[in-house]
Nucleic acid binder design. Structure first.
Lengths: 342, 342
DNA sequence: CTGAAAGCGCTTACAG
DNA sequence: CTGAAAGCGCTTACAG
């Protein structure tokens, strides 16, 4: 093992020690055929003695592939993102590929900066949960050979592969579930309407109401209030005597948590709630939380499959995959209007 | 913008177009001083026209720094790991550094492979939540200048910085809390005892019992049963009339969830529970879940600070940081023995 | 089965 | 303020 601090042995060092050419060391390191047993042994010994480890950066510079992909998430720490992250990691790992992941924090500027930083690192491909609404900044990179797949929300102003959830259908199903249990005055709390998923879920809610012949009062819809305090205020207003909503469809994870916290223990047995996205422990609440679930692992897996397909030479036109949601009934969505106590 | 598919413009291309030397382009791209306004403008124009983006791989090869660090987690998707991940990402981002993250899945072989893969990528440093019990495989890398910080569990058989949770103290506090509420027969469910954190938490439990002059029956301790079914069986046995435990200290997140699922709604108001690690929605359960919390963000932040300090030239002897836990009482830990109903 | 030469795209260490 | 030369550590594309 090399003991000179800071000095890393190179293939050249190994070659000299083994008395061969660098190319022969390269063959051994990469498991290429055409090396005699005797040479193989000498080179391997030299590698072990020097503690040699191939420099993948140098390799990438010459070969043109970095065997790494960039993954752009909204927030690496939230459950949706981190489950997607794991699915992508798994797919990458099985192909000897590493994942550079980062959070955009729902900020288009940060999305763009991170995406282009990944491009400077010459990732082979990009999987993006986009925050922005204009992805033309990727055009030069795509032209230069970058593969890109969008997840959860489609690319805007460019053509690209996308793996999406059927948000309209999911929200429709959630609202229809509440209608089926007797509700006519149903509130919808969603994220900012410029976010495609939020707009789609709102549309699904409206479709279910209209489809059942029910009116929708503008008072019942609150978009863009996702912080705990704002959700609390919204819930209080919606469930007040004046507005008189008997059920709430929550447009995402964070909003659902806010709604649950805002409802008093008593109201939790009185106001029906359906959430979009699952939560750990949701089944242990009383009543259990009824949710429309999407499958972040399936999204991540599909996105990775698409991406690696592109990297393997797939030149077909961009594809759009839609994943269905599933309604999981656990109690909170089955409360009927006018129930005195849960 | 270059339109020839697959061809990326280089600094040389930019230099030719602007009529300057590559070194001058390098100065402009890196914001170095000593370039006249006129030259600056010409080079910038050429960069924009060609759609040039610096190849960071080539840069790293020459400069010797990749501006990236490797992060080795147990499972990128679990809340502890993903919160730690975000804290590390944030610290790295503020220093223009990217994070390569991967999961060891609690497998020493996979830990080692991933760590050495990161080394082949020439990450500047490594933050590791270790799975294995021998880290001498990192010695050649450390000698060559790699910085490494261990988190949650210390390095084994090598000297390295570590950022840890006070597991003994945390478990002691959790058990003492139950004792203070009148329990004498307290069960402990922990992970495999060869995992340092699991062993420490068991020790804290024992210390609290002994410190209060209470006996500990071997029947009350179950180590290594972390799957839902196993935890269920363990809980059933512990709370049976024969064993007669009135309270349970759950040694980690997954075990806590298992315990809650295993307890019937009635038993949830009868058997006291304290969990190690917080859970989302823990406050919305009935009773609310009492937990000993650690702070994964603080661990991640501290580990990153230590690492970047080393990269900036800190040559002091390895340090060990211990973070205190905090007990959050929400109801489940305050149930007294013999309570008929929650 | 083995190797010599060139080059990937930058930065370093100079010189003027 | 600007640039020519060399080199980072590999692999490519040959040749023998």
């Amino acid at each position: 093992m090399s003991t000179h601090y800071g000095a890393r042995p190179t293939m050249n060092d190994v070659a000299k020690r083994a008395g061969v050419a660098p190319k022969t060391v390269s063959r051994v390191v990469n498991g290429e055929p055409g090396v005699s047993e005797a040479t193989l042994a000498r080179v391997r010994a030299a590698i072990a003695e020097l503690g040699f480890r191939r420099n993948d950066g140098a390799r990438s510079l010459r070969s043109g592939r970095t065997a790494s992909i960039g993954l752009l998430l909204e927030d690496i720490a939230d459950p949706f993102s981190s489950q997607l992250n794991r699915a992508v990691e798994e797919a990458a790992r099985s192909r000897g590929c590493l994942v550079l992941a980062g959070s955009s924090a729902e900020d288009p500027v940060r999305e763009r900066e991170l995406a282009l930083t990944f491009c400077s690192r010459r990732v082979d491909g990009l999987i993006v949960v986009p925050a922005g609404d204009d992805h033309r900044y990727l055009l030069p990179e795509l032209t230069a050979g970058l593969a890109a797949v969008f997840v959860d929300r489609p690319a805007r102003r460019i053509e690209a592969d996308a793996v999406l959830t059927d948000n309209v259908g999911g929200a429709r199903e959630g609202a229809a579930h509440l209608i089926r249990h007797g509700h006519r005055r149903i509130g919808f709390l969603g994220d900012l309407p410029h976010i495609p998923t939020a707009a789609e879920r709102l549309r699904g809610y409206r479709e279910a109401m209209t489809g059942a012949g029910l009116p929708v009062s503008p008072e019942w819809i609150v978009m863009g209030s996702t912080g705990p305090a704002e959700v609390g205020a919204a819930v209080e207003r919606l469930t007040s005597a004046q507005v008189g909503v008997t059920a709430v469809l929550a447009g995402n994870n964070r909003i659902t948590v806010g709604v649950l916290r805002a409802l008093s223990a008593q109201d939790r047995g009185r106001i029906a709630v359906v959430g979009f996205d699952d939560l750990e422990l949701a089944d242990l609440l009383s009543p259990g939380l009824t949710v429309v679930v999407q499958d972040p692992e399936a999204l991540g897996r599909a996105a990775a499959e698409l991406l690696f397909g592109r990297l393997a030479g797939d030149r077909r036109p961009p594809r759009e995959l839609r994943f269905r949601t599933r309604l999981v009934a656990r109690g909170s969505g089955e409360i009927r209007p006018g129930t005195a106590c849960g």
